[in-house]
């Protein structure tokens, strides 16, 4: 197995998918000669040609709108939105069109496509290059939403997304694009949707998290270990479909749950997870469910490090559930 970064795993998955299936096409801004602003699509143009690797005009609703038409026709488009923060012009096309086409037509028309987009803070990108707005898409029936936290899952989830019969929003944790490395299986490596992964075992408490925050949770768990607390880190990997059983079982195991995400707190996915735990694991709880999240503010530039949950803040929450 080759050791890759998260970014290389994205690129490897795209190369594999395009090589395996001529119906897979990629489109977006700056994705051809440049290979994308992060180089995720590097080399695709040279290998697969301009008919399947399409630089588009600068219009997100056009990227997603045309991708929908391609998907309806039978292709498997993988549009790239340069930053999740730029996706809103395409919001209508995603939530009212791609997500609803199967339902609207009673299954006659389907929209299998993978919207790849980097999300999240920690890169000094300010408001327009840092947000985590997964909730909008999770709240939209008809979409699937997945977020990898390491190179192997990146490839496995992306190839699974491309094979999926429904539209998938594939959120790439740009903060760890180049910093997290790991072994990535060759060929058609798949990670099924709806299966959480235990990133670290621990019997005393659990941190529910996904994407780049998994690494923050692991650091917090290491801090907790110094206090003698064994903290489990559950990497959800796919938010829709959600591995409800894994969440409920983890909550029951320790009875102490901390939820960690970058997105603003109010109506963040953490609230939904807390409700799930309350509904199905209430009697097992030994402490209130706590959330460690971004602030209910726009994403700041200078005080980004305060806004973003870090290991210390996460540890504080672990400490509170442990000492409740």
């Amino acid at each position: 197995m080759a050791v890759m970064t998260v970014l290389q795993a994205v690129n490897d998955a795209l190369h594999h998918a395009m090589g395996a299936d001529r119906d897979v096409v990629v489109l977006g801004e700056d994705i051809a000669e440049l290979g994308g602003v992060f180089r995720a699509t590097d080399g695709l143009l040279a290998k697969h040609g301009p008919e399947r690797v399409m630089n588009t005009p600068l219009a997100e609703s056009g990227i997603i709108g045309t991708a929908i038409g391609m998907a309806l026709y039978g292709l498997k488009p993988v549009p790239e939105i340069q930053f999740l923060d730029f996706i809103y012009p395409a919001f209508d096309q995603i939530v009212s069109e791609a997500a609803k086409m199967r339902y609207r037509s009673g299954g006659q028309f389907t929209c299998p496509m993978v919207i790849r987009t980097p999300y999240g803070g920690g890169i000094r990108g300010g408001h327009y290059h840092s947000q985590s707005s997964e909730t909008y898409f999770i709240h939209t029936p008809g979409l699937k939403v997945v977020v990898p936290s390491n190179p192997a899952d990146t490839k496995g989830l992306l190839l699974e997304a491309i094979a999926d019969p429904d539209p998938v929003v594939f959120l790439e944790p740009k903060a760890i694009y180049r910093t997290v490395k790991g072994e990535v299986p060759e060929g058609d490596h798949r990670v099924p949707f709806g299966k959480a992964a235990v990133a670290r075992e621990g019997a005393d408490a659990v941190v529910l998290c996904w994407g780049a925050m998994v690494h923050t949770a692991l650091k917090a768990a290491a801090l907790a270990e110094e206090q003698g607390w064994q903290v489990e880190v559950l990497d959800l990997r796919s938010l829709v479909p959600l591995d409800e059983e894994a969440v409920v079982e983890a909550a029951k195991r320790s009875g102490r749950v901390v939820i960690l995400h970058e997105a603003p707190r109010t109506n963040g996915f953490g609230g939904e997870l807390a409700a799930l735990v309350a509904e199905r694991a209430f009697e097992w709880l030994r402490a209130p469910v706590l959330r460690v999240t971004g602030f209910d503010t726009p994403f700041p530039y200078t005080l980004e490090h305060i806004y973003m949950p870090d290991a210390k803040r996460t540890f504080k929450a672990i400490e509170r559930v442990m000492t409740f």
Partner: peptide
Amino acid sequence: SWRAGNHVSLSSPIGTQIPQAVGAAMA
């Protein structure tokens, strides 16, 4: 919507079908 005739589902939000039609033609 009528699959056999490639008559795609109408959308009430206005104009969304225009880029979609362009994409289908590209495909």
